[in-house]
Design a protein around this nucleic acid. Structure first.
Length: 424
RNA sequence: GGAGAAAUGGCAGAGUGGUCGAUUGCGGCGGUCUUGAAAACCGUUGUUCGGGCGACUGAACCGGGGGUUCGAAUCCCUCUUUCUCCGCCA
Protein backbone atom coordinates (compact mmCIF):
# COMPACT_ATOMS: atom_id res chain seq x y z
CA UNK A 1 0.00 0.00 0.00
CA UNK A 2 1.18 3.51 -0.76
CA UNK A 3 2.05 5.67 2.21
CA UNK A 4 -0.37 8.41 3.15
CA UNK A 5 2.53 10.87 3.14
CA UNK A 6 3.20 10.25 -0.53
CA UNK A 7 -0.41 11.06 -1.31
CA UNK A 8 -0.40 14.17 0.83
CA UNK A 9 2.74 15.52 -0.71
CA UNK A 10 2.64 14.32 -4.31
CA UNK A 11 -0.89 13.39 -5.22
CA UNK A 12 -0.56 14.52 -8.82
CA UNK A 13 2.60 12.47 -9.31
CA UNK A 14 0.75 9.44 -7.98
CA UNK A 15 -2.09 9.95 -10.42
CA UNK A 16 0.30 10.48 -13.33
CA UNK A 17 2.44 7.48 -12.58
CA UNK A 18 -0.53 5.16 -12.15
CA UNK A 19 -1.64 6.02 -15.67
CA UNK A 20 1.35 3.95 -16.81
CA UNK A 21 -0.45 1.01 -15.21
CA UNK A 22 -3.64 2.11 -16.97
CA UNK A 23 -5.15 2.94 -13.60
CA UNK A 24 -7.19 6.08 -13.09
CA UNK A 25 -6.56 6.98 -9.47
CA UNK A 26 -8.11 10.44 -9.43
CA UNK A 27 -11.27 9.62 -7.51
CA UNK A 28 -9.60 7.37 -4.98
CA UNK A 29 -6.81 9.85 -4.34
CA UNK A 30 -9.24 12.69 -3.76
CA UNK A 31 -11.34 10.54 -1.50
CA UNK A 32 -8.28 9.47 0.46
CA UNK A 33 -7.11 13.04 0.94
CA UNK A 34 -10.54 14.05 2.12
CA UNK A 35 -10.71 11.15 4.57
CA UNK A 36 -7.22 11.95 5.77
CA UNK A 37 -8.25 15.52 6.57
CA UNK A 38 -11.34 14.39 8.40
CA UNK A 39 -9.41 11.78 10.29
CA UNK A 40 -6.95 14.35 11.57
CA UNK A 41 -9.66 16.76 12.56
CA UNK A 42 -11.38 14.03 14.51
CA UNK A 43 -8.16 13.04 16.17
CA UNK A 44 -7.42 16.57 17.33
CA UNK A 45 -10.89 16.90 18.77
CA UNK A 46 -10.96 13.47 20.33
CA UNK A 47 -7.48 13.81 21.82
CA UNK A 48 -8.44 17.11 23.43
CA UNK A 49 -11.55 15.68 25.08
CA UNK A 50 -9.61 12.62 26.19
CA UNK A 51 -6.89 14.83 27.67
CA UNK A 52 -9.51 16.66 29.68
CA UNK A 53 -11.04 13.41 30.87
CA UNK A 54 -7.64 12.12 31.93
CA UNK A 55 -7.10 15.32 33.81
CA UNK A 56 -10.43 15.14 35.62
CA UNK A 57 -9.76 11.58 36.67
CA UNK A 58 -6.58 12.71 38.32
CA UNK A 59 -8.41 15.52 40.07
CA UNK A 60 -11.03 13.07 41.33
CA UNK A 61 -8.26 10.83 42.58
CA UNK A 62 -6.71 13.55 44.68
CA UNK A 63 -10.11 14.75 45.93
CA UNK A 64 -10.85 11.24 47.16
CA UNK A 65 -7.55 11.16 48.99
CA UNK A 66 -8.57 14.32 50.77
CA UNK A 67 -11.92 12.77 51.59
CA UNK A 68 -14.04 15.36 49.78
CA UNK A 69 -16.92 13.02 49.04
CA UNK A 70 -19.45 15.55 47.76
CA UNK A 71 -17.03 17.21 45.36
CA UNK A 72 -16.13 13.80 44.04
CA UNK A 73 -19.72 12.87 43.33
CA UNK A 74 -20.37 16.18 41.59
CA UNK A 75 -17.32 15.77 39.39
CA UNK A 76 -18.39 12.24 38.42
CA UNK A 77 -21.75 13.50 37.26
CA UNK A 78 -20.19 16.17 35.09
CA UNK A 79 -17.90 13.67 33.48
CA UNK A 80 -20.55 11.43 31.96
CA UNK A 81 -21.60 13.92 29.26
CA UNK A 82 -18.02 14.34 28.25
CA UNK A 83 -17.59 10.59 28.08
CA UNK A 84 -20.52 10.31 25.70
CA UNK A 85 -19.00 12.96 23.50
CA UNK A 86 -15.64 11.23 23.54
CA UNK A 87 -17.23 7.90 22.66
CA UNK A 88 -18.90 9.41 19.63
CA UNK A 89 -15.73 11.12 18.50
CA UNK A 90 -13.58 8.04 18.78
CA UNK A 91 -16.18 5.92 17.01
CA UNK A 92 -16.19 8.38 14.14
CA UNK A 93 -12.43 8.42 14.15
CA UNK A 94 -12.33 4.62 13.90
CA UNK A 95 -14.85 4.63 11.07
CA UNK A 96 -12.99 7.21 9.05
CA UNK A 97 -9.65 5.47 9.69
CA UNK A 98 -11.06 2.19 8.50
CA UNK A 99 -12.50 3.71 5.37
CA UNK A 100 -9.22 5.48 4.69
CA UNK A 101 -7.38 2.19 4.96
CA UNK A 102 -9.88 0.50 2.65
CA UNK A 103 -9.43 3.16 0.01
CA UNK A 104 -5.67 3.23 0.38
CA UNK A 105 -5.27 -0.47 -0.30
CA UNK A 106 -7.18 -0.10 -3.56
CA UNK A 107 -4.32 1.86 -5.08
CA UNK A 108 -1.69 -0.17 -6.95
CA UNK A 109 2.00 0.45 -6.48
CA UNK A 110 3.58 3.15 -8.59
CA UNK A 111 5.62 1.83 -11.49
CA UNK A 112 9.27 2.91 -11.56
CA UNK A 113 9.84 5.82 -14.00
CA UNK A 114 11.79 3.51 -16.31
CA UNK A 115 8.77 1.25 -16.82
CA UNK A 116 7.34 1.54 -20.31
CA UNK A 117 3.67 2.28 -20.80
CA UNK A 118 1.64 -0.43 -22.49
CA UNK A 119 -1.36 -2.64 -22.20
CA UNK A 120 -0.44 -6.18 -23.14
CA UNK A 121 2.55 -8.51 -23.10
CA UNK A 122 3.21 -7.27 -26.66
CA UNK A 123 4.42 -4.03 -25.12
CA UNK A 124 6.98 -5.65 -22.84
CA UNK A 125 10.59 -4.78 -23.47
CA UNK A 126 13.01 -7.58 -24.27
CA UNK A 127 16.12 -6.74 -22.28
CA UNK A 128 18.36 -9.51 -23.53
CA UNK A 129 18.34 -13.13 -24.47
CA UNK A 130 20.79 -16.01 -24.25
CA UNK A 131 21.32 -19.66 -25.03
CA UNK A 132 20.87 -21.38 -28.34
CA UNK A 133 17.57 -22.43 -29.80
CA UNK A 134 17.74 -26.19 -30.31
CA UNK A 135 17.16 -27.81 -33.68
CA UNK A 136 14.78 -30.66 -33.17
CA UNK A 137 13.90 -33.61 -35.32
CA UNK A 138 10.67 -33.18 -37.26
CA UNK A 139 9.08 -35.88 -35.10
CA UNK A 140 9.96 -34.09 -31.85
CA UNK A 141 7.36 -34.49 -29.12
CA UNK A 142 5.85 -31.94 -26.74
CA UNK A 143 6.62 -32.65 -23.09
CA UNK A 144 3.18 -34.09 -22.36
CA UNK A 145 3.94 -36.88 -24.80
CA UNK A 146 7.50 -37.30 -23.54
CA UNK A 147 6.42 -37.78 -19.94
CA UNK A 148 4.06 -40.54 -21.06
CA UNK A 149 6.66 -42.14 -23.26
CA UNK A 150 9.16 -42.35 -20.39
CA UNK A 151 6.50 -42.73 -17.68
CA UNK A 152 7.95 -40.05 -15.44
CA UNK A 153 4.96 -37.81 -14.67
CA UNK A 154 1.43 -39.11 -14.31
CA UNK A 155 -1.50 -36.75 -14.62
CA UNK A 156 -4.17 -39.45 -14.51
CA UNK A 157 -2.86 -40.73 -11.23
CA UNK A 158 -2.99 -37.20 -9.84
CA UNK A 159 -6.60 -36.89 -10.98
CA UNK A 160 -7.40 -40.11 -9.16
CA UNK A 161 -5.74 -39.06 -5.96
CA UNK A 162 -6.65 -35.38 -5.94
CA UNK A 163 -7.87 -33.83 -9.17
CA UNK A 164 -6.68 -32.15 -12.34
CA UNK A 165 -3.54 -30.09 -11.96
CA UNK A 166 -1.94 -32.25 -9.28
CA UNK A 167 0.53 -34.46 -11.13
CA UNK A 168 2.37 -37.43 -9.65
CA UNK A 169 6.08 -37.50 -10.40
CA UNK A 170 7.49 -41.00 -10.71
CA UNK A 171 10.93 -42.57 -10.89
CA UNK A 172 13.32 -40.34 -12.80
CA UNK A 173 10.63 -37.68 -12.93
CA UNK A 174 10.55 -37.47 -9.15
CA UNK A 175 14.31 -37.63 -9.05
CA UNK A 176 14.57 -34.74 -11.51
CA UNK A 177 12.32 -32.63 -9.30
CA UNK A 178 14.49 -33.27 -6.27
CA UNK A 179 17.61 -32.58 -8.31
CA UNK A 180 16.34 -29.22 -9.52
CA UNK A 181 15.24 -28.16 -6.03
CA UNK A 182 18.61 -29.05 -4.56
CA UNK A 183 20.48 -27.42 -7.41
CA UNK A 184 18.52 -24.18 -7.07
CA UNK A 185 18.91 -24.10 -3.29
CA UNK A 186 22.64 -24.78 -3.52
CA UNK A 187 23.10 -22.04 -6.09
CA UNK A 188 21.16 -19.65 -3.88
CA UNK A 189 23.37 -20.53 -0.94
CA UNK A 190 26.49 -19.89 -3.02
CA UNK A 191 25.10 -16.49 -3.97
CA UNK A 192 24.80 -15.51 -0.31
CA UNK A 193 21.20 -16.39 0.40
CA UNK A 194 20.25 -17.96 3.70
CA UNK A 195 18.18 -21.10 3.27
CA UNK A 196 14.71 -21.07 4.79
CA UNK A 197 12.12 -23.78 5.10
CA UNK A 198 8.90 -21.94 5.90
CA UNK A 199 5.38 -23.11 6.71
CA UNK A 200 3.24 -23.61 3.63
CA UNK A 201 0.04 -22.58 5.36
CA UNK A 202 -0.25 -18.96 6.42
CA UNK A 203 -2.68 -16.88 8.44
CA UNK A 204 -4.68 -13.87 7.33
CA UNK A 205 -2.15 -11.33 8.57
CA UNK A 206 0.53 -12.86 6.39
CA UNK A 207 -1.78 -12.94 3.40
CA UNK A 208 -2.46 -9.26 3.91
CA UNK A 209 1.19 -8.39 4.43
CA UNK A 210 2.32 -9.49 0.98
CA UNK A 211 -0.85 -8.38 -0.77
CA UNK A 212 -2.74 -11.61 -1.49
CA UNK A 213 -5.54 -10.61 0.84
CA UNK A 214 -8.11 -9.25 0.72
CA UNK A 215 -8.30 -9.04 -3.07
CA UNK A 216 -6.87 -12.27 -4.42
CA UNK A 217 -8.63 -14.51 -1.97
CA UNK A 218 -10.08 -16.69 -4.72
CA UNK A 219 -6.61 -17.59 -6.00
CA UNK A 220 -5.62 -19.36 -2.81
CA UNK A 221 -6.80 -22.62 -1.27
CA UNK A 222 -8.41 -21.84 2.05
CA UNK A 223 -8.43 -24.25 4.98
CA UNK A 224 -11.67 -23.02 6.46
CA UNK A 225 -11.71 -24.95 9.70
CA UNK A 226 -8.52 -23.24 10.84
CA UNK A 227 -8.79 -20.13 8.67
CA UNK A 228 -5.41 -20.69 7.03
CA UNK A 229 -4.36 -20.27 3.42
CA UNK A 230 -2.12 -22.56 1.39
CA UNK A 231 0.66 -20.46 -0.03
CA UNK A 232 0.67 -19.56 -3.73
CA UNK A 233 4.39 -18.81 -3.46
CA UNK A 234 7.13 -18.92 -0.83
CA UNK A 235 7.23 -15.15 -1.11
CA UNK A 236 4.34 -15.04 1.37
CA UNK A 237 5.85 -16.84 4.37
CA UNK A 238 9.44 -15.73 3.71
CA UNK A 239 8.65 -12.05 3.30
CA UNK A 240 6.36 -12.21 6.34
CA UNK A 241 9.35 -13.19 8.46
CA UNK A 242 9.98 -9.45 8.42
CA UNK A 243 6.47 -8.34 9.31
CA UNK A 244 6.56 -5.92 12.28
CA UNK A 245 10.34 -6.02 12.31
CA UNK A 246 12.79 -3.14 12.62
CA UNK A 247 16.14 -4.04 11.09
CA UNK A 248 19.52 -2.33 11.42
CA UNK A 249 20.58 -0.55 8.26
CA UNK A 250 23.88 -2.40 8.49
CA UNK A 251 22.09 -5.74 8.07
CA UNK A 252 20.62 -4.77 4.71
CA UNK A 253 20.17 -6.26 2.26
CA UNK A 254 18.83 -9.46 3.83
CA UNK A 255 18.89 -12.40 1.42
CA UNK A 256 16.75 -15.51 1.89
CA UNK A 257 16.08 -18.48 -0.34
CA UNK A 258 13.52 -21.19 0.18
CA UNK A 259 11.88 -24.11 -1.52
CA UNK A 260 8.17 -24.78 -1.11
CA UNK A 261 5.39 -26.41 -3.02
CA UNK A 262 3.00 -23.72 -4.26
CA UNK A 263 -0.76 -23.95 -4.56
CA UNK A 264 -2.90 -21.95 -6.92
CA UNK A 265 -6.55 -22.39 -7.64
CA UNK A 266 -6.16 -20.73 -11.04
CA UNK A 267 -9.89 -20.16 -11.06
CA UNK A 268 -11.08 -19.34 -14.54
CA UNK A 269 -7.69 -19.47 -16.17
CA UNK A 270 -7.91 -22.82 -17.87
CA UNK A 271 -8.06 -23.02 -21.60
CA UNK A 272 -5.63 -23.07 -24.46
CA UNK A 273 -1.91 -23.27 -23.73
CA UNK A 274 -2.29 -24.90 -20.37
CA UNK A 275 -1.61 -28.48 -21.36
CA UNK A 276 0.79 -30.66 -19.49
CA UNK A 277 3.07 -28.81 -17.11
CA UNK A 278 2.23 -25.36 -18.39
CA UNK A 279 -0.23 -24.63 -15.59
CA UNK A 280 -0.81 -26.61 -12.40
CA UNK A 281 -2.61 -26.30 -9.09
CA UNK A 282 0.40 -27.60 -7.20
CA UNK A 283 3.97 -27.07 -8.26
CA UNK A 284 7.45 -26.71 -6.81
CA UNK A 285 9.38 -23.49 -6.71
CA UNK A 286 12.53 -22.07 -5.19
CA UNK A 287 12.15 -18.43 -4.32
CA UNK A 288 14.66 -15.72 -3.49
CA UNK A 289 13.65 -12.80 -1.29
CA UNK A 290 15.60 -9.68 -0.41
CA UNK A 291 14.86 -6.94 2.09
CA UNK A 292 16.84 -3.95 0.93
CA UNK A 293 17.74 -0.38 1.74
CA UNK A 294 15.72 2.02 -0.45
CA UNK A 295 18.93 3.54 -1.80
CA UNK A 296 20.20 0.22 -3.13
CA UNK A 297 17.09 -1.80 -3.89
CA UNK A 298 17.56 -1.54 -7.64
CA UNK A 299 21.08 -2.87 -7.24
CA UNK A 300 19.48 -5.77 -5.41
CA UNK A 301 17.05 -6.23 -8.27
CA UNK A 302 19.93 -6.34 -10.77
CA UNK A 303 21.76 -8.83 -8.58
CA UNK A 304 18.67 -11.05 -8.45
CA UNK A 305 18.20 -10.84 -12.20
CA UNK A 306 21.82 -11.89 -12.72
CA UNK A 307 21.33 -14.78 -10.32
CA UNK A 308 18.23 -16.08 -12.07
CA UNK A 309 19.93 -15.66 -15.43
CA UNK A 310 22.93 -17.66 -14.23
CA UNK A 311 20.64 -20.57 -13.39
CA UNK A 312 19.23 -20.61 -16.91
CA UNK A 313 22.73 -20.41 -18.39
CA UNK A 314 23.89 -23.34 -16.27
CA UNK A 315 20.87 -25.35 -17.33
CA UNK A 316 21.77 -24.53 -20.94
CA UNK A 317 18.28 -23.34 -21.73
CA UNK A 318 17.49 -20.68 -24.33
CA UNK A 319 16.00 -17.76 -22.48
CA UNK A 320 15.02 -14.16 -22.73
CA UNK A 321 14.53 -11.49 -20.09
CA UNK A 322 11.70 -9.02 -20.53
CA UNK A 323 10.87 -5.97 -18.53
CA UNK A 324 7.14 -5.78 -18.09
CA UNK A 325 5.24 -2.80 -19.34
CA UNK A 326 2.93 -0.92 -17.01
CA UNK A 327 -0.18 -2.75 -18.07
CA UNK A 328 1.30 -6.21 -17.61
CA UNK A 329 2.70 -5.58 -14.15
CA UNK A 330 1.19 -6.84 -10.94
CA UNK A 331 -0.70 -4.65 -8.51
CA UNK A 332 2.13 -4.63 -5.98
CA UNK A 333 5.20 -4.30 -8.20
CA UNK A 334 7.25 -1.22 -9.08
CA UNK A 335 9.39 -3.04 -11.62
CA UNK A 336 9.26 -6.61 -12.84
CA UNK A 337 11.51 -8.73 -15.01
CA UNK A 338 10.04 -11.90 -16.42
CA UNK A 339 12.26 -14.74 -17.50
CA UNK A 340 11.07 -16.96 -20.30
CA UNK A 341 12.57 -20.16 -21.65
CA UNK A 342 11.96 -21.45 -25.11
CA UNK A 343 10.10 -24.69 -25.21
CA UNK A 344 11.13 -26.05 -28.54
CA UNK A 345 8.45 -28.59 -29.28
CA UNK A 346 5.67 -26.24 -28.28
CA UNK A 347 7.51 -23.44 -30.04
CA UNK A 348 6.58 -21.09 -27.22
CA UNK A 349 8.27 -18.94 -24.66
CA UNK A 350 7.29 -20.06 -21.16
CA UNK A 351 7.53 -17.81 -18.11
CA UNK A 352 9.72 -19.46 -15.50
CA UNK A 353 10.49 -16.54 -13.22
CA UNK A 354 9.12 -13.19 -12.27
CA UNK A 355 11.52 -11.00 -10.35
CA UNK A 356 10.25 -7.77 -8.86
CA UNK A 357 11.05 -4.81 -6.71
CA UNK A 358 8.05 -3.83 -4.62
CA UNK A 359 9.86 -0.86 -3.13
CA UNK A 360 8.04 0.17 0.07
CA UNK A 361 4.62 -1.06 -1.06
CA UNK A 362 4.68 -4.41 0.73
CA UNK A 363 6.86 -3.06 3.53
CA UNK A 364 4.20 -0.49 4.38
CA UNK A 365 1.66 -3.26 4.82
CA UNK A 366 4.17 -5.45 6.64
CA UNK A 367 5.53 -2.62 8.78
CA UNK A 368 8.99 -3.77 7.82
CA UNK A 369 11.37 -0.98 8.69
CA UNK A 370 15.03 -0.27 9.32
CA UNK A 371 16.94 2.23 11.34
CA UNK A 372 20.20 3.93 10.41
CA UNK A 373 22.89 3.59 13.05
CA UNK A 374 22.26 6.11 15.80
CA UNK A 375 19.08 7.40 14.18
CA UNK A 376 15.85 7.63 16.09
CA UNK A 377 13.61 7.50 13.08
CA UNK A 378 12.64 4.36 11.24
CA UNK A 379 12.20 4.06 7.47
CA UNK A 380 10.33 1.50 5.41
CA UNK A 381 12.50 -1.14 3.77
CA UNK A 382 12.17 -2.17 0.17
CA UNK A 383 11.15 -5.78 -0.50
CA UNK A 384 12.01 -7.85 -3.55
CA UNK A 385 11.47 -11.37 -4.67
CA UNK A 386 11.94 -13.65 -7.61
CA UNK A 387 11.46 -17.24 -8.64
CA UNK A 388 14.77 -19.03 -8.85
CA UNK A 389 13.14 -20.99 -10.28
CA UNK A 390 9.67 -22.45 -10.83
CA UNK A 391 10.06 -26.09 -11.75
CA UNK A 392 7.30 -27.30 -14.09
CA UNK A 393 8.07 -25.19 -17.12
CA UNK A 394 11.80 -25.72 -16.62
CA UNK A 395 11.08 -29.43 -16.74
CA UNK A 396 8.92 -28.95 -19.83
CA UNK A 397 11.70 -27.07 -21.62
CA UNK A 398 14.42 -29.51 -20.53
CA UNK A 399 12.39 -32.45 -21.81
CA UNK A 400 11.45 -30.87 -25.12
CA UNK A 401 14.75 -29.18 -25.92
CA UNK A 402 17.01 -32.04 -24.94
CA UNK A 403 15.12 -34.92 -26.52
CA UNK A 404 17.12 -37.25 -28.71
CA UNK A 405 16.26 -40.55 -30.33
CA UNK A 406 18.05 -42.23 -27.40
CA UNK A 407 16.21 -40.30 -24.69
CA UNK A 408 16.29 -36.96 -22.90
CA UNK A 409 19.78 -35.77 -22.07
CA UNK A 410 20.32 -33.99 -18.74
CA UNK A 411 22.39 -30.81 -18.66
CA UNK A 412 25.83 -31.52 -17.19
CA UNK A 413 25.26 -29.36 -14.14
CA UNK A 414 22.32 -31.49 -13.04
CA UNK A 415 23.94 -34.92 -13.40
CA UNK A 416 25.56 -34.86 -9.93
CA UNK A 417 22.09 -34.14 -8.57
CA UNK A 418 20.04 -36.59 -10.65
CA UNK A 419 22.51 -39.42 -10.62
CA UNK A 420 21.69 -40.15 -14.27
CA UNK A 421 22.56 -38.56 -17.58
CA UNK A 422 19.62 -39.67 -19.63
CA UNK A 423 15.92 -40.26 -19.25
CA UNK A 424 15.17 -43.18 -21.49
C1' G B 1 -7.98 -34.07 23.54
C1' G B 2 -8.14 -33.36 29.48
C1' A B 3 -6.12 -30.55 33.96
C1' G B 4 -3.28 -26.49 35.70
C1' A B 5 0.08 -22.05 35.23
C1' A B 6 1.51 -17.94 32.53
C1' A B 7 2.02 -13.74 28.60
C1' U B 8 5.07 -6.61 30.91
C1' G B 9 9.95 -2.32 27.07
C1' G B 10 16.15 -5.48 22.94
C1' C B 11 16.59 -9.41 27.01
C1' A B 12 15.83 -10.72 32.26
C1' G B 13 12.35 -9.48 35.78
C1' A B 14 9.18 -6.09 39.55
C1' G B 15 4.54 -4.08 39.70
C1' U B 16 -2.93 -6.60 42.00
C1' G B 17 -7.41 -0.10 40.84
C1' G B 18 -5.03 6.43 41.07
C1' U B 19 0.84 11.29 38.76
C1' C B 20 2.85 3.81 35.88
C1' G B 21 5.10 4.47 29.71
C1' A B 22 5.81 1.57 33.91
C1' U B 23 11.09 0.01 39.82
C1' U B 24 15.55 -2.63 38.92
C1' G B 25 19.43 -5.47 36.41
C1' C B 26 21.74 -6.70 31.75
C1' G B 27 22.52 -5.08 26.91
C1' G B 28 22.85 -0.53 23.59
C1' C B 29 24.30 4.68 23.03
C1' G B 30 26.92 9.23 25.01
C1' G B 31 30.37 11.10 28.64
C1' U B 32 34.20 11.29 32.86
C1' C B 33 38.72 8.75 34.01
C1' U B 34 42.91 6.26 30.80
C1' U B 35 48.57 6.50 26.22
C1' G B 36 44.60 2.93 24.58
C1' A B 37 41.25 -0.62 26.47
C1' A B 38 38.82 -2.82 30.64
C1' A B 39 36.76 -1.67 35.33
C1' A B 40 34.31 2.14 37.98
C1' C B 41 31.16 6.35 37.94
C1' C B 42 27.48 9.82 35.54
C1' G B 43 23.81 10.45 31.89
C1' U B 44 20.69 8.42 28.15
C1' U B 45 17.88 4.52 25.96
C1' G B 46 10.44 1.74 22.98
C1' U B 47 6.59 2.14 19.11
C1' U B 48 2.51 4.64 16.63
C1' C B 49 -0.85 8.67 15.34
C1' G B 50 -1.61 14.02 15.86
C1' G B 51 -0.98 19.72 16.89
C1' G B 52 2.83 23.76 16.49
C1' C B 53 7.63 27.71 12.12
C1' G B 54 9.80 26.32 16.59
C1' A B 55 10.79 25.75 21.91
C1' C B 56 7.39 22.33 22.86
C1' U B 57 2.96 19.57 23.25
C1' G B 58 -1.76 15.97 23.08
C1' A B 59 -3.43 10.84 22.49
C1' A B 60 -2.72 5.48 22.21
C1' C B 61 0.06 0.99 23.27
C1' C B 62 2.03 -3.89 29.51
C1' G B 63 -0.21 -10.98 23.95
C1' G B 64 -5.23 -9.65 20.60
C1' G B 65 -10.41 -8.09 21.14
C1' G B 66 -14.42 -6.59 24.36
C1' G B 67 -16.33 -5.06 29.31
C1' U B 68 -16.59 -2.85 34.54
C1' U B 69 -14.88 2.06 36.63
C1' C B 70 -14.37 9.06 37.27
C1' G B 71 -9.69 6.20 36.63
C1' A B 72 -7.13 -0.51 34.46
C1' A B 73 -0.59 -3.35 33.37
C1' U B 74 -3.61 -4.40 37.81
C1' C B 75 -10.75 -6.59 38.12
C1' C B 76 -14.30 -9.47 34.56
C1' C B 77 -15.32 -12.01 29.67
C1' U B 78 -13.26 -13.97 25.24
C1' C B 79 -9.59 -15.41 21.68
C1' U B 80 -4.48 -16.59 20.69
C1' U B 81 0.16 -18.28 22.22
C1' U B 82 3.71 -20.50 25.66
C1' C B 83 4.98 -23.77 29.77
C1' U B 84 3.97 -28.19 33.19
C1' C B 85 1.33 -32.89 33.93
C1' C B 86 -1.83 -36.77 31.56
C1' G B 87 -3.53 -38.99 26.88
C1' C B 88 -2.46 -39.69 21.66
C1' C B 89 1.18 -39.63 17.86
C1' A B 90 5.37 -39.13 12.68
Amino acid sequence: MLTINLLREQSSTVIDRLRIKNFDATDIVNHVLDLDRRRRELQVESDAVQAELNNLSKVIGSMMKEGRKEDTEAAKKGISIMKEKQKLLSENFDMVSEELQKELIRLPNLPHPAVAPGKTPEDNVIVRSGGRLPELQPDALPHWDLIKKYDIIDFDLGIKITGAGFPVYKGKGARLQRALINFFLDEGGKAGYREIEPPILVNEDSGFGTGQLPDKEGQMYHVGIDNLYMIPTAEVPITNIYRDVILDAADLPVRNVGYTPCFRREAGSWGAHVRGLNRLHQFDKVEIVQIAHPDTSYESLEEMVKHVESLLVKLELPYRIVRLCGGDMSFTSAMTYDFEVYSAAQQRWLEVSSTSNFEAFQANRLKCRFREKGAKQTTLCHTLNGSALALPRIVAALLENNQTPQGVKMPAVLVPYTGFEMIS
